[in-house]
Design a protein around this nucleic acid. Structure first.
Lengths: 149, 149
DNA sequence: AGTATTTCATACCTAAATACTAAGTTTTTT
DNA sequence: AAAAAACTTAGTATTTAGGTATGAAATACT
């Protein structure tokens, strides 16, 4: 079980936006250069995030993306769920899935509990928290904190 | 992120063995019928579990598998890890993986924390616990608990 | 008005992994 | 000797991951 690059890249995109100090639109080209993520691929990933309403976008020259709300109002659970499709750790727990053996399943209760553990962690996590963790980590490594200009 | 059928089937196999009351070898054919898991596929899944030393096997007629130790001594973390390869939630955290961007990664600290959350849950879980959860769940559904003859 | 630049959208592609099946070999019991 | 089981290797179909390619629509600047 691995989260896909979609999810990894998507979250890095959001953290990047959160790190931008000034009020400006960030272009995907900038992320391609800074974060080494293919522009074309990133376009598709961003599209997965749009329905959550977390992004403001502007087309054309000097266009790009910015966060639509404060990072502390942005739930990682919601972002991962949009990028990954859902948060179920096994397909049996995905919404559309049905299985007549469910009442007799030897392991379903355990999987449900694991799902709850993961969901609880992700629900309690905001984009602000992830940014803070990143900053702490940088400090540990003794890096000067510059943020994104 | 989804755990594979390998892992799901493998755990069901282990719980099934734990539910057997008598001291006998359980044949894969029995699991094929009771749990609807292809015998040929199950053979390969079982092979992933053998290196952990959790299984005793006997060949030939009346052969099969039984647990090598008490279910409370069998860690789910170890079983899932053997079935899945490792417990990393993203490939960046798999053992062999290396990435020169790690010190600057915007999200790695968060993923490490999630990994710890998942590992902690799985490490604290034994096969005995999973069996108990199954039994409780059956009771909730009002099913008569027969176990496996 | 025209051009450059960006997001937005659809379609397509390739490699790898998943989830098996097939066919046999080895070991043990009857 | 025969049957039945675990073991082993190889192959295969399908799905998913992880992208590219192409172009349309919107915006800003000249």
């Amino acid at each position: 079980m691995k989260y896909s690059t979609r999810t990894r890249y998507g979250l890095r995109f959001l953290v990047y936006l959160a790190l931008v100090e000034e009020d400006r639109y960030v272009q995907l080209r900038e992320l391609e250069q800074q974060e080494r993520i293919s522009l074309r691929y990133l376009e598709q990933i961003v599209r997965l995030l749009k329905p959550t309403g977390v992004l403001l976008s502007s087309r054309g020259k000097y266009g790009g993306y910015k966060l639509a709300r404060n990072p502390e109002k942005i739930s990682i659970a919601e972002m991962v769920s949009s990028l990954e499709g859902d948060l179920a750790p096994i397909s049996c727990l995905s919404h559309q899935y049905s299985c007549d053996r469910k009442p007799d399943c030897l392991t379903l209760p355990m999987w449900e509990e694991l799902q709850e553990v993961i969901n609880k962690y992700l629900r309690g996590k905001t984009l602000k928290d992830v940014v803070a963790q990143y900053r702490e980590n940088r400090a540990r490594y003794g890096k000067i904190e510059t943020g994104v200009q």
